[in-house]
Design a protein around this nucleic acid. Structure first.
Lengths: 167, 167
DNA sequence: TTAAACTTTCAATAATTACTGAAAGTTTAA
DNA sequence: TTAAACTTTCAGTAATTATTGAAAGTTTAA
């Protein structure tokens, strides 16, 4: 396997993986492309490399910037905009964890809390609903706390956590 | 908010959440319904409650069984099949974690390993591809190991882990 | 056996989600 | 200013994914 094949394989795998963790294919592919690029890329270069339209590129770059994963970079002497992604995997993982917590987990915790707080009318089904959603609420919240604490350890957090868990 | 409203809210929230962790809406809704039910439910009851077709119900129940989250239960004196879901949230979380590791993480680790093992032809771009995919490989593998070890602690694993991490 | 009760399969279709491309908008250099 | 260089927006369309429903398949009781 030589460069081009390996590159394509990486980008397409990362792309289809994206949908699993809640971002779309193009978004994940753009990030992947930037991740292995040796220099900032322009919209033009991204479109050409991934064979996607200008509109699509623009929209997905914006989303990546909203996530805080990609940033605009100025290149001396160039008028157009260039883009780079966070290159440190641990930092990348931190950003993603925090964003997912904010976007996905927090809203769910809220709903679970609301649902589990309905008044107990004494019926078995109400009791079961309360009991189960309470358990889910507690679990989800614990996991969210865990993620947010882990992530605050910054430097080398994943390895550090692994060590802590199994020493 | 009384029972029916709370129930609907829970089922629809869980349903839309499903797509975030890689299962479809109907599948997540069926699981949610079983999760708060006080007794095993038949296909008929599930269809009616969620207003989905027989075919859809059948296919998604199968998937839930493939995941190991839902099981068939026999009800005395009844010919048709009844279904129940794992009721313990911690056990549920364990099953999901293990399955996701197997279905999603493991294949990615393999691709990353393949890609990062290409021969270094000395060019900057090849060096960058190798370096970055190696870093990603290492991280992904560490996280996978972490998940699998955590999950083997069985009883009360989430709370235990939280304590370990922050004592 | 057979036929009723039930479940599964799958082609057709609906619903959702992603993508394009051209027009509108913005910025910058002259 | 203005016009070239560039980016964003968004209605239309394409691609993907989920759902239906009816036919085929299976099981069980008589």
């Amino acid at each position: 396997m030589e460069y081009q094949e390996a590159k394509d394989k990486f980008i397409s795998t990362w792309g289809s993986l994206g949908s699993l963790w809640g971002i779309n294919k193009a978004m994940a592919q753009i990030q992947a492309l930037l991740f292995i690029s040796t220099k900032p890329l322009s919209m033009e270069e991204i479109m050409e490399d991934l064979k996607i339209s200008r509109g699509n590129t623009s929209m997905n770059l914006r989303q990546l910037m909203d996530w805080g994963i990609v940033t605009k970079t100025l290149v001396a002497g160039e008028r157009k905009e260039f883009f780079t992604t966070e290159k440190d995997v641990q930092e990348l993982a931190r950003i993603i964890a925090v964003e997912r917590s904010r976007r996905e987990i927090k809203p769910v915790v809220k709903v679970l809390n609301d649902v589990s707080s309905i008044t107990d009318d004494g019926t078995a089904k109400t009791k079961e609903l309360i009991k189960q959603t309470k358990a889910l609420h507690e679990l989800t919240e614990t996991m969210d706390v865990m993620i947010n604490k882990l992530v605050n350890q910054k430097q080398n957090w994943i390895t550090k956590s692994l060590l802590k868990l199994f020493k």
